[in-house]
């Protein structure tokens, strides 16, 4: 499979930024596109490798069934709320949805 030298368009960069929830200005998009394409061009190098019939290595060693007993611990909630930027009582405040 041959892909164009610069796989990502500015439109695609903007779409990715939306998916990743990263605000990008128009200038950012242009700059980002240049950087991304440079690196993606380099990544294309892996096309040279024939991986037909090869399984992916998601886990490097063959551990299976690592399980935990269903025994509750008392929750450690106190310190966890210390880092919350916006609270209302014990609720974590989030922006409006719509």
């Amino acid at each position: 499979m041959k892909t164009p030298k610069h796989p990502i368009s500015e439109k695609e960069v903007s779409h990715l930024a939306e998916l990743a929830r990263l605000e990008l200005s128009g200038k950012d998009v242009t700059e980002m596109r240049l950087h991304l394409n440079k690196i993606l061009d380099y990544f294309k190098m892996i096309d040279e490798v024939d991986t037909e019939g090869i399984s992916p290595t998601y886990h490097v060693f063959d551990l299976v069934n690592v399980l935990r007993d269903d025994t509750p611990h008392s929750p450690e909630s106190k310190d966890l709320l210390e880092n919350v930027p916006k609270k209302k009582g014990r609720y974590i405040k989030a922006p409006r949805m719509i």
Binding site: R68, H73, P75, E76
Partner: peptide, 23 residues
């Protein structure tokens, strides 16, 4: 008795907000 991936109790109902949590 506990959540799917941690030891926090599963009986979260009726508890004050954000008290039934762990890292």
């Amino acid at each position: 008795k506990t959540k799917l991936f941690c030891n926090s109790p599963s009986d979260y109902r009726e508890k004050p907000p954000n008290t039934n949590i762990c890292p």
